[in-house]
Design a protein around this nucleic acid. Structure first.
Lengths: 122, 122
DNA sequence: CAGGATCCTTTACGATACTG
DNA sequence: CAGTATCGTAAAGGATCCTG
């Protein structure tokens, strides 16, 4: 039960732990990834569009999550001069930078599913 | 407010959304990344070691999170024939495959901090 | 259409004490 | 040492209704 010395190549040091905490806090909750995932395809969608696309979400949660994401500059919110008013949401340029991370997550997750599936088959 | 056609290069389709949900569910909560991050450096640690290394966690949460992670084959638990019994935890080979994803998350998070910091300075 | 207000249920988390 | 049991709080999430 000795601690291996600090010869590690990719230590998850304090700074990195904090960074990951930041990410988790920005994207925490049941819906943020789903919303980002929907918008990151490049779509510009209205509130009702998102209500339909993000399966299962209610208007209260959607509203709150959109505010969080906008506050963190990951998505943009545009109000249009129509009556009644319409609003459109889109991913920001900065939000796009999430893509490599999302890709890694999806890649790992897909592989995980395969593994679980195969083990069950055996 | 038209939906852009499906000409996207990296669409976050249903399968990928599900995969990301899996990842989030495996690694959700306040502590899992911290535990994984501690063990992924290659250390083999006992319960008390982790209680010290994972800052702020209590024995109840630690115990629960360790069970979750073990159930998902991300960490291993070994009981030793000592008195009183000691137990050691380590990352599994499969758990190691999380590293690319964790690296991307840390990278994005570090960059995010920089951005927030710079904006505040201006 | 785009949300806010209200109320309610369900998890997550934490402190403390205790056991083999 | 390595946990479990019990209790309590706080946060997340959901259903429904309402408004400019």
């Amino acid at each position: 039960m000795k601690k291996t010395a600090e010869i590690n190549k990719t230590p998850v040091c304090k700074v990195r732990m904090q960074a990951i905490s930041d990410v988790m806090s920005l994207l925490s909750g049941k819906w943020k990834f789903h919303i980002i995932g929907t918008l990151i395809e490049g779509n510009t969608l209205g509130f009702m569009d998102l209500l339909r696309e993000v399966n299962g979400i209610g208007s209260k949660m959607l509203s709150k999550e959109l505010q969080d994401l906008e506050m963190n500059k990951l998505i943009s919110r545009t109000v249009h001069n129509t009556k009644p008013v319409t609003v459109s949401y889109a991913i920001t340029e900065y939000g796009q930078t999430l893509l490599p991370m999302i890709n890694e997550m999806a890649k790992w997750g897909v592989n995980y599913r395969k593994m679980v599936f195969n083990e069950h088959v055996i």
